[in-house]
Amino acid sequence: MATLSKPKFRWHIAVFLAPAVLVYTAVMIYPLFNTLRLSFFAEIDHERVWVGLRNFRTLFLDPVWSKQFWNALANNFWFFLIHMAVQNPIGIALAAILSSPRLRFAALYRSAIFVPTILSFVIVGFAWKLILSPIWGIAPGMLDAVGLKFLYQPWLGKQEYALTTLALVSVWQFVGIPMMLIYAALLSIPEEILEAGECDGITGLSAFWKIKLPLILPSIGIISILTFVGNFNAFDLIYAAQGALAGPDFSTDILGTFMYRTFFGFQLQLGDPHMGSAIASAMFAIILAGVCIYLFGIQRRLRHYQF
């Protein structure tokens, strides 16, 4: 806390800053670095011993561990890709429709579409689990009604579909966020620009592609990085729907559930805080890399327009 000390130490600045800085440092920054530090230790004979990079060697190279790690990482990337390919385009499309002028009931639609976002993962996970369940039969019943019953599968119970299904459930839950952010960006485009385009004969869809989309690219960048950080930090939905084992047969395991299992243990395996820290460190590196790519690679190249 550097304060100007020459004329007179201004105590009030320190007083204003102290509570936030103390809580933030003690509960967030210090544990973060402590976790990174713990990943270089292991417990041997009830004592914490420095083992250097051994945990990471185990994580990346040991056949049992590395299989789980790469599986979780690959699943996590797939989870993220589905969000980028489904959630964000739907969000943008909904925002574009909502922002059309003089649309009636716009506020009503907006509020209704945002409802899933406010629900907890526990509710969302179980609600979809029940709806997709072959026992209850809502999903097969609805497919039957439109003559597509043959398409039905117990999606959450099949290895090849479970992860994609959960990713789509998560998309359903969070589509409101990109929708709102893009909606705000679209509203801030000045009317004159659109009218100028109209004079040149650019209206409707081509106005969206040629004028609006380039102008909202920075917002699309923000929702992409928010999605990235959120996805590589996800845990709750998988845990609520499939449990800590992320079944069937780890096919829905992502880094969050993998770290939880490693840290806390499950069934016969004991929890291991040091391996848990190693996974947390790997997650930290991935998220940091993503944020850096965004800040230095993408955000700087995007053109920002000032109105």
């Binding site: 967030m28 544990p31 973060l32 976790t35 990085i225 845990f235 805080p273 998220i287 940091l288 944020v291």
Partner: peptide, 22 residues
């Protein structure tokens, strides 16, 4: 100080769970 406090916007606090629990 502003940058230091802004770090936490992008880095999720969950990463530090092991040490927080300890």
């Amino acid at each position: 100080m502003g940058l230091y406090l802004a770090l936490g916007i992008m880095i999720p606090i969950r990463i530090g769970t092991v040490a927080i629990l300890e």
